[in-house]
Write a protein that binds this DNA or RNA. Structure first.
Lengths: 361, 361
DNA sequence: GCGCGTAGTCGAATCGATTCGACACGGGCA
DNA sequence: TGCCCGTGTCGAATCGATTCGACTACGCGC
């Protein structure tokens, strides 16, 4: 009878054996088999061995995660919502570092990361994927919407660098203060006319000069905060919104700010990311300006390595990986029911070789 | 009685309402509620409306994905296994492009991507995450192991650029042939002494000269194939295995190959990735060699954009995004029970400005 | 006017595990 | 000798949905 077990010997698409089958073969009840398998509960060694043998014989691959997650009310999956296309989001090393930090923590806790892109109207994932918690990163525009959906599902929400929102645990960065520090550095060097290259401010990532009503139209929290930080010090700064956090977009923005007579262009530019800063430097190079002689450039992020091409960028170094870890930890704590305290990270000013006093003209 | 619905008005951790609760409030059976909600089956408009109203009142967020996935035997999740740490894997734009291609297809089909890293002994994800299929990318060393686990779970497996393996649907690239094409290009230019910088060949990513017994110790399929392609044309080529697919690792390898008397170093280097190639070019620059005057360099991948820094690299352009799409499609087909045919992609040789005839010496 | 098909609804089984409470048995302690 | 408790095992409820088969009316055709 139970020798139907041998079915699996060779056949084609044999259905996955269940715990019940294992129990039957081992001659014990399902509950005992479960106990034996999970190690919880008192089970005699002999029984344990028989169950193990039966499982082995049937090729039982362990409890079905679907059934398990239903019963336990946990799926062991944490959703990560990324606003843009993956290829866009991952162009910036900061996002990768962030994700790496998250993966570091959640991976260690045995949770998987479910990547949810928010492109188009693909709400499907957010509204119906099996998750225990969700981490929003780089989500600006549609934040409210996403939060509403997720909240209705009763999932804990962690948001990295988002504006305060009811029921959302924030992982913050001192964007405004840090940017102000960078700006003050320029002021102390003697700069009085500076430009700002911002990250995309609104949903439509169209590169353009900063509109006067940017406060009203801005939906990207990080960009807005960093901009405020600069304006705190230089209320008159001219701005240009880049189309993305890439070198190319930075170059484009840089060319726009540096166009015109040398006497009328800013003597320093604050870029809201290091990639943008590198682009600005490239633009300066193209219009024949020397950095930092003719133009000082400040970045943000503190990326390292190849992309910099050996440049020692003056920038604000943010602990991206650590930020990711904090987000991961917070998500885990929340889904454990425990309270998680919001984290706030601080960027460190790194004076590099791309800033200097303005050339007297 | 049923006014307990109002509990959710403000309270703390109200448990998520179930379909049963909705049905009760609407005064219909659970089965009818289910039918009404999913739209399947004949339900009168009046009933549908009442169910919808009840769901609305209770704040029902739709069927619990966990229960759904148990019943349906599907979780709507596709696992993507990445061998290394995310920050390492995503340093190479090719991997991002690949993932983007996968996400493109699976996202459109409503499936989420579960990121599983294979760092350490963290088999947890692979062996127990709720997934419907799995895609292995850049998995070399521990391929067999991973495949064994997943196969026992009865999941369809798609592997990108892996060696043939029973029960695994391969998505291939003409690594060997394409590399040979690159090598023949060098031969036709007149080079007779070339070097190869390979991607990591084994688990331990230690940079070192290619050992004589590399065939035996190599576990990375892609690297090995690309190497074979070059050796097909230049059996005597000297090799150096880089520690990663990064510019820095390429530079390091380049310096190693270019050390010594100018007369004894290779006149051309084939790098197994564009990032490595850029590193090699940087190394050449450092030791005072001009590319392509003193040294020709061939890459692999066909990355574009900033990292290249304006270099027109001679390389083999592979359709990475398309490869990802194919992998995604294959996974979807397999989990639909349908047969999926393996895909094989072809790289296109792009003659750039980094190769030239060797300087006569 | 009778029977049959169908729209609409419901009850119950099912997916595969976990876990609580109950039960039987044997040994230690009073 | 009798009682209690811990160990090992089992049955049954439960998680939350989907879906099959059955049942009730009702309308239509013959």
């Amino acid at each position: 009878m139970t020798s139907e077990a041998s079915t699996g010997e060779k056949g084609g698409v044999r259905p996955r054996p269940t715990l019940a089958a294992v129990a039957r073969l081992a001659g014990v009840s399902v509950s005992t088999a479960s106990l034996a398998f999970s190690g919880a509960g008192p089970v005699s060694d002999a029984t344990k061995a028989r169950v193990a043998a039966a499982a082995d014989e049937l090729g039982y691959a362990g409890p079905d995660p679907r059934a398990q997650s239903l019963r336990r009310g946990r799926s062991g999956i944490i959703g990560v919502v990324i606003e843009e296309r993956l290829s866009d989001a991952f162009r910036d090393p900061m996002n990768i570092a962030l994700l790496d930090g998250i993966a570091d923590v959640t991976g260690a806790a045995g949770s998987g990361l479910l990547l949810l892109t928010e492109t188009g109207d693909d709400r499907a994932g957010i509204s119906s994927a099996p998750m225990d918690a969700i981490i929003l990163i780089g989500c600006s525009t549609s934040l409210e919407e996403a939060v509403a959906i997720v909240r209705q599902r009763g999932l804990p929400i962690v948001a990295v660098e988002a504006r305060e929102l009811e029921g959302v645990l924030p992982i913050g960065l001192d964007n405004r203060a840090a940017s102000a520090t960078g700006a003050r550095h320029l002021r102390s060097l003697g700069h009085s006319d500076i430009g700002v290259v911002t990250l995309p401010l609104e949903r439509s990532h169209v590169p353009r000069p900063l509109p006067a009503d940017w406060e009203r139209v801005a939906t990207a929290h990080t960009s807005a905060e960093r901009l405020r930080g600069v304006l705190d010090v230089y209320p008159e700064a001219r701005g240009f919104a880049a189309s993305a956090s890439t070198i190319e977009a930075g170059r484009e923005a840089g060319l726009a700010l540096l166009a015109g007579d040398r006497a009328t262009v800013p003597t320093a530019i604050v870029a809201q990311s290091d990639l943008l800063a590198i682009g600005v430097i490239r633009a300066a190079d193209e219009v024949g300006m020397i950095v930092p002689g003719d133009l000082s450039v400040v970045g943000f992020d503190g990326i390292r390595g190849e992309v910099l091409g050996g440049i020692d960028l003056t920038t604000l170094v943010q602990p991206a990986v650590e930020k990711g870890r904090a987000a991961g930890r917070a998500a885990l704590q929340l889904l454990d029911g425990g309270p998680a305290e919001p984290a706030d990270f601080t960027s460190v000013f790194h004076p590099g070789g791309t800033t200097a006093p303005p050339r007297t003209r």
